[in-house]
Design a protein around this nucleic acid. Structure first.
Length: 282
DNA sequence: TAAGTATGTTAAG
DNA sequence: TTAACCTACTTAC
């Protein structure tokens, strides 16, 4: 689940469920127990996401920093009749127990769950690139990195210090929608291309926050429009190339390719995203 | 039942 | 570049 849209969605959900309430904070699994004790019984102020980082703020400049990593999960249950016993390896549990209203949230498998000061939180934000889901984000900051780098655009899009919140699915789909070869060097892109990509990300990722899934196919390429069966797999969203290697491209029919780039799987259509040829080579 | 895989990041070598 | 983190689901046997 966890690309930027998941974290922003969680921040909204946590804020709606717990902000302004006194919460019990515990760590049934134990690894967060010492920190949990420091904020247990305090007022939860709000939750905020920056890229794939989630910050839950408490009084006295204390922040719970959560990063879900590859397989972490944070399940929020609001308005339940009662709070059940924790099942499995629950790293952190938040509980709001009021007279006739109960809510809890369980965190499992996260890469990071730690209590930070405001300065430590600010340091994480400072080393993050602009986040398309934040209104205060400045796309030029990412562009200045891209235009100066010879690294492949497919890698730059995943670099959280260039751009915050984009993961493997949005990376693959954005490159497809803009017909870009993933290996094309960042410094060969034009500003206009980047502006188009940024605007697209803002729209796609906001849609992701609304729906809780990643859908990237245009109306003319939906299963209904094309008369093909809907995607039936773990992620649910309709996509062009992500994990569709060996299957025909929805646009041109060429088989989608995959390769490893910096330890992550890359997916692209070799025809729609034609190989970039530099002027010097041509 | 076991093995493999994953929308991610960090630290060690 | 590789391993580690440590969870849940899918696929292979």
């Amino acid at each position: 689940m966890p690309e930027g849209h998941t974290l922003h969605r969680l921040a909204e959900e946590l804020t709606a469920t717990f902000a302004g309430r006194v919460v019990r904070v515990g760590s049934p699994q134990g690894r967060f127990a010492d920190s949990a004790a420091l904020i247990d019984g305090q007022l939860l102020l709000r939750a905020e996401a920056w890229g794939k980082h989630l910050f839950v703020s408490f009084p006295d400049d204390r922040y719970v920093h959560v990063h879900l990593g590859l397989y972490g999960k944070l399940d929020v249950h609001a308005g339940v009749p009662e709070v059940p016993a924790a099942v499995g390896q629950v790293r952190m549990r938040l509980v709001a127990d009021e007279r006739e209203w109960h809510a809890y949230a369980d965190l499992r498998g996260a890469t990071a769950c730690e209590l930070l000061t405001e300065a430590e939180r600010d340091a994480i934000i400072a080393r993050s690139g602009p986040d398309p889901l934040r209104d205060d984000a400045d796309p030029s900051v990412a562009w200045e990195r891209i235009r100066r780098s010879r690294a492949p655009i497919g890698g730059l899009l995943m670099d959280q210090s260039v751009l915050a919140g984009v993961g493997n699915v949005y990376r693959a789909e954005l490159l497809f929608r803009h017909r870009l070869d993933p290996y094309r060097p960042g410094n060969t892109l034009r500003r206009g291309q980047w502006d188009g990509m940024w605007a697209d990300l803002v729209e796609l990722m906001h849609e992701g926050v609304r729906t809780g899934r990643i859908d990237t196919v245009r109306p003319e390429h939906t299963p209904e429009a094309m008369g093909r069966p809907p995607r039936r797999d773990d992620h649910g969203g309709e996509v062009y190339v992500y994990r569709r290697n060996g299957q025909p491209c929805h646009v041109c029919g060429t088989l989608v390719r995959t390769a490893e780039l910096q330890g992550r799987n890359l997916f692209w259509c070799p025809r729609c995203q034609r190989k970039f040829r530099s002027r010097a080579a041509a």
